[in-house]
């Protein structure tokens, strides 16, 4: 009976929820609407529970790391410290929660992300080395878009905006449309494969 538990039941659950989700969107019937709405409530409930399982998984991971004194285990104490501090502040004092979030977490996150700017510029410098005709056109398009995003050029050289807009509205948009259509077709294909039972990886 283990094959039933492993394959057929998850497939059946998927098929039922798929059909409700798909037809519930198009069919305006009170009964279908109620089922559709209830399904959403379940999903939201599960999403909330998933946050809890994430917390458990994180606690287990860092707990094991400390217990085994693995490399960098000291930082796991910081994780637990921050977790407890945030948790307590949420219930004990909303003002301190705002302070922790606005004055510590947000600036720290911004600072970390800002480092990528330096690396990106360093990478851009190497990427725009004109070694071939293709690289020349890449660098040229890149230059025009750099000028587009530096507002001063658009003000003094209006033509730059027009060329950059053309690049974004035509070649870039064409490529993006291709990606969007490709992703959409791929998603439908995967959904059909799952529905027909060809895709079984999600059943574990």
């Amino acid at each position: 009976m283990s094959w039933v538990r492993r394959r057929e039941i998850p497939l059946l659950i998927f098929a039922i929820t798929f059909i409700i989700g798909c037809f519930g969107y198009y069919i305006e019937h009170p009964a279908m609407g109620k089922i559709y709405s209830t399904l959403f409530d379940w999903v939201l409930l599960m999403s909330n529970l998933a946050l809890g399982t994430g917390l458990i998984a994180m606690t287990l991971y860092h707990g094991k790391k400390i217990a085994k004194r693995e490399k960098g285990y000291e930082m796991s104490f910081v994780v637990f410290g921050a977790l407890i501090l945030m948790f307590v502040s949420c219930y004990a004092s909303p003002a301190s929660r705002e302070y922790l979030y606005a004055k510590i977490y947000t600036p720290a996150s911004i600072a970390i992300l800002c480092f990528t700017g330096f690396s990106e510029i360093s990478g851009l410098y190497r990427a725009f080395r004109v070694r071939s005709v293709e690289a020349f056109f890449l660098a040229l398009a890149g230059f025009i878009l750099l000028m587009h995003f530096a507002p001063v050029y658009g003000f003094f050289i209006p033509g730059v905006e027009k060329v950059a807009s053309w690049l974004l509205d035509n070649p870039a948009m064409g490529a993006s449309r291709g990606i969007v259509i490709g992703v959409a077709i791929g998603t439908i294909a995967i959904a059909i494969r799952v529905l027909l039972g060809y895709e079984k990886a999600y059943t574990g």
Partner: peptide, 20 residues
Amino acid sequence: TSLCLTFVMLLVIVGNISYW
């Protein structure tokens, strides 16, 4: 942003002159 992107463009030009 305007200053940094101008700096980047200058660097790319200088880098390419040196390379060529």
